[in-house]
Design a protein around this nucleic acid. Structure first.
Lengths: 232, 232
DNA sequence: GCTCGTTTCAAACAGTTGTTTGAATGATAC
DNA sequence: GTATCATTCAAACAACTGTTTGAAACGAGC
């Protein structure tokens, strides 16, 4: 009955995961070599393969250790709202809060690596590599249908596919806001004095809700001016 | 006076650029090797270094050949609206149309590679590598200030930094919508029968405008319930 | 014919990649 | 002490990376 079970190794596993997480954000998966990771973690090169098996498995574990918790938190928030509602459809802003609010709060945590991880996660939604996509799909399999359902009930007058697309757009706005590097120097002059991570949530949430509740497009018109006669 | 100037080489330059563009979208910069590119293009390995100098220079040229045109189109659209307005501030939807509408129209072009390129561009906004970020900043240097200015004039009651953040959010929603892989299988069941690229613009534009014009957050309140007494 | 500048080609370059190996080290149980 | 386990370590592995080289092939101009 060896009780050496919870602590398999002193902390080299965690040190590897932390180093890998930070380096993945900084350089991406491919550009981050095992030697960079082990060097930063201060462990031997072979220990990654010993503890995780392969680089691919390491990447998955970097996500798994935080994503599981995040998705549980999102589901808990949703269920709390549903209990309060006693069977009535939720308000749209509650659903948005349960999914994106929880995410933004994790992104605001700069102490325990939550911010680093959310930057990584946001970028990963556009990750081309197949195994990462598959892994994400599995991790979200229990979450996405629940939120879909809640949104359909909340907005019965909006076509379901329109709701899903807007959820998609919201996810993009958030991911980009967290992971984006402001490559265009758009808000460059402001984000310096806006290091407060809470500020992002205050700014983003109204935007998301405004987009979600925007009036449906009138099918045609509006962008139909093919030959723009110059008003001179 | 040799007139062999416009057509330096038959078409291997273009073939390399096309192959690189497609492979970068598929696998990313780092994961795409020169041998993959030259293999797909059907040219010799050394021809990339001969025509472009280095892989880094090739990446820049992949962007430059389309981004210059795109940004000119965006500026032209903006200037056309400004001429029509005769000095009056533009409508917000016109500015959004000039920037994002033009982009979405390029993304809708599946014939000449516009779609492929926009997917690549969207992903690149979150690209970590420094030289790509610097390159993007330079390419957009002439465009971003003009659109900033137009938005400030159009929405005089909204604080400038709020406008910029929302422009940032809009850029994220669009980039992700174009580049995103729907890793969460969110709209998976719908996007199959929605291959029509025009549909994306019809769905996205109202979302962007709804977000841009959303009411400002009331500074505090609303998300202030730290201890959620369960309504039982 | 020859020549000149451009482009293509196969081969090799040195360096890095992820992974494996087998011995060394450590700690625990008997 | 010895035996047994998990962990660490330096070294090496083959495969792949971007780049360079020098000769070959090409296409005009004369």
């Amino acid at each position: 009955m060896s009780l050496t079970e919870a602590k398999q190794s002193p902390d080299t596993r965690e040190r590897i995961l932390d180093a890998a997480e930070a380096l993945f954000v900084e350089h991406g998966f491919e550009a981050t070599s095992m030697r960079m990771i082990t060097g930063r973690a201060g462990v031997n090169l072979a220990s990654v393969n010993y503890h995780f098996g392969s680089k691919e498995a390491l990447i998955q574990e970097v996500f798994r250790r935080r994503l599981t918790w995040l998705n549980e938190a999102r589901l808990n928030a949703l269920e709390r709202f549903e209990q309060e509602a006693r069977g009535a459809p939720l308000k749209a802003h509650q659903i948005v809060e349960a999914f994106f609010g929880v995410s933004l709060r994790m992104a605001a945590d700069t102490e325990h690596g939550g911010h680093t991880f959310m930057r990584l996660l946001g970028r990963t939604y556009t990750e081309p590599s197949a195994f990462v996509r598959q892994f994400l799909a599995d991790e979200y399999a229990a979450v996405v249908p629940r939120f879909k359902q809640a949104l359909f009930r909340s907005l019965p007058d909006v076509p379901p596919e329109e709701i899903l697309w807007r959820f998609h757009f919201m996810l993009g706005a958030m991911s980009y806001a967290i992971a984006g590097t402001d490559a265009l120097q758009l808000v460059a002059e402001y984000e310096l004095d806006e290091k407060d991570p809470e500020a992002l949530a205050r700014r983003l949430m109204p935007f998301l809700l405004g987009g979600l509740r925007a009036p449906l497009a009138g099918q045609a018109v509006k962008t139909k001016e093919k030959n723009p006669r110059k008003a001179a």
